[in-house]
Each structure stands twice: as C-alpha cells, then as structure tokens.
Amino acid sequence: MKKDYSRRSFIRKSAFLSSMLIGGGFILNACNSSTQSTTESETASAPVDSCNDYSNVSDVELQKRESLGYVEETPIPDSDCANCQLYIKPNEGEKCGGCQLFKGPVFENAYCTYWAPMV
C-alpha cells in the first residue's frame, strides 16, 4: 500500500481544512450574533424607569461599582460622570446614563475613582 505524500495532496488537504475552519467560524459567529441582537433589542426597548433600578444588574456588577468607588453625588466639584470620558449618555426618554466600566444606571452628577476628563 503506497501512501500519497505529494505536494498536491498536502495543498488539497490544507485548503479543505482551512475552508472548514473558516466556514465553522462564520457559522458560530452567525449563531452568536443572532443571540446578541435579540438580547440587545430586548434591553434597548425597555427604558430604565429609575436611576435606582438595579433589578437587571448582577451582584458581581454591583460589587464592581462599589470597588470603583461609585457614589451618586460627586465629592469633587467639576468632576462628575456627565463630564467623564467613560460616561454613556442616556438615550432619549431615559433618565440615567451608563458607564463603560460597569453595568447599571449612572447618575450624571455621580462620581467614581476612575473619572477621566473629556478630551
């Protein structure tokens, strides 16, 4: 029995495996993006009723907020979330914004130890 170790065979097998890996990546990415878009649209369609509504925020995220020193009223004049580079402005009809460092509602006049001035 003669084994086929030709360059042509190697290239054919490599091309086949590459296309399978790339195709599998596209399939997995498509599955993941459809799940994310559903979750994002559900979240985006439900406006935050109150800046104190933490019902959809996990305990881990609440602990992260606390560890970053988040307080609802800034102790430092002119250093609040509204003028922080990490602040996410509220959408129309929402009362509170967000933060790039943690999940959950954020007051405009709040503060955390990672405050970064807008540039």
Rank of each mutant, 00 (worst) to 15 (best):
D53T: 02
K95A: 15
S6M: 01
E72F: 04
V71T: 13
N91H: 06
F16E: 14
G24L: 08
R7V: 14
D4M: 01
T74K: 00
P77W: 03
E72H: 05
P77Q: 09
S34A: 09
F26M: 14
E42L: 10
S45L: 06
G104E: 04
E61S: 08
N109K: 15
I88K: 11
A44Y: 14
F10K: 03
S79L: 06
L86T: 08
Y5T: 04
N32I: 11
F107L: 12
F107D: 12
G98V: 10
I22P: 00
C81H: 07
D59Q: 04
R7D: 14
F107T: 05
L68D: 03
V106Q: 01
E73W: 00
C31G: 10
I88H: 05
I22F: 15
M20T: 15
T39Q: 10
A82I: 11
S6K: 02
K64W: 01
I11K: 07
Y87K: 02
K64V: 09
K89F: 13
M20W: 06
S79D: 04
P75Q: 07
G25T: 12
C96L: 09
P47F: 08
T43D: 06
T39A: 14
V71C: 06
C81P: 00
N29G: 15
N32W: 09
P47W: 07
V60F: 07
P105T: 12
E61N: 03
Y70F: 10
A110Q: 04
N52F: 02
S67L: 06
T35W: 05
T39R: 08
E40H: 09
K3C: 02
E72W: 04
E42T: 08
L68F: 14
N109V: 13
E66V: 03
E94M: 10
V71R: 02
T74I: 01
P90D: 11
I22W: 07
E73L: 04
V106D: 03
S9C: 04
C96N: 05
A30N: 11
Q100K: 15
I22R: 12
K13S: 13
P77T: 10
C99M: 03
S41H: 03
M20Y: 05
I22T: 15
C31S: 14
P105F: 06
S45Y: 01
Q85F: 12
G23R: 03
F16K: 14
R12K: 11
D53N: 10
K95D: 13
K95W: 08
